[in-house]
Simulated scan of single mutants.
Amino acid sequence: MTKLLDQALEIARSLPADAQDDIARIVLQLAGAEATSPVVLSEDERAAIAASKEAAARGEFATEAQVQATWVKHGL
């Protein structure tokens, strides 16, 4: 195991169990050990994604303050 991966796992151990599981799923996918089926989106989710893409096309992005507030909200 590389030093960087060991460091990442050590940090992950300090996170809540649900966050650890999310990280584990991502690592398994990247390593090719977990075959996953596509996620089926609801109509609301599809509409939200479409609205986001339209806003991005217009150049409307979150401000630095909004991004920071989101990180704080989620403890990151």
Rank of each mutant, 00 (worst) to 15 (best):
G32M: 08
E10K: 10
A47Q: 08
L15I: 02
L9D: 01
R13S: 14
L41W: 10
A19Q: 11
A56D: 04
R58D: 07
I11R: 13
A19D: 09
A50H: 01
D18Q: 07
A24G: 02
A31C: 08
S52Q: 08
E43Q: 15
Q7G: 02
L30S: 06
V27T: 10
P16T: 05
E60S: 07
A24P: 00
L28G: 10
V40K: 14
A47L: 09
A24C: 02
A19L: 06
E10A: 14
E45S: 13
E60Y: 03
D21A: 14
E60G: 04
P16H: 08
V27A: 15
D18L: 02
P38C: 15
R25H: 04
R25V: 04
A33N: 03
S14R: 11
S52P: 00
L9G: 00
S42H: 06
Q20R: 14
L28E: 13
D21N: 06
L28M: 14
S42D: 11
A24H: 08
A17F: 13
D44Y: 11
L9W: 08
A57F: 07
E10H: 10
A56Q: 07
Q29G: 15
V27M: 15
D44G: 06
A55Y: 03
A12K: 01
E10D: 12
A19Y: 03
L5W: 13
S37W: 01
L41I: 03
E43W: 10
L5Y: 12
K3Q: 10
A47V: 01
L28P: 01
A48K: 09
A55M: 07
K53Q: 15
R46D: 09
S52K: 08
D22S: 04
T36N: 12
A33G: 12
L9M: 05
Q7D: 09
D21Y: 09
D22F: 05
V39N: 05
L41P: 01
K3G: 02
A47N: 06
I23R: 00
T36V: 15
L4M: 02
L41V: 05
S52D: 12
A33M: 06
V39G: 00
A35G: 12
L5T: 08
A8D: 02
G59S: 07
R13P: 00
R46K: 13
A31S: 10
A33Q: 12
P38S: 15
P38G: 15
A17P: 04
I49T: 04
P38E: 15
Q7T: 01
I23S: 03
Q29M: 13
E10W: 05
E10M: 07
A12D: 02
A56L: 11
R25N: 06
D44W: 10
R46I: 09
A33W: 06
D18R: 05
S14G: 09
P16W: 05
A35L: 10
L5H: 12
E34H: 10
P38F: 15
P38I: 14
D22C: 01
K53L: 14
D44I: 08
A12G: 00
Q7F: 04
S37D: 12
Q20M: 04
S52N: 11
A57T: 03
S52W: 02
E10V: 00
I26F: 07
L28S: 11
L30I: 05
R58Q: 13
E34R: 14
L9T: 00
D44H: 13
I23H: 01
A47K: 05
D22N: 07
L28D: 11
V40E: 15
V27Q: 10
R13C: 04
A33E: 13
I49K: 07
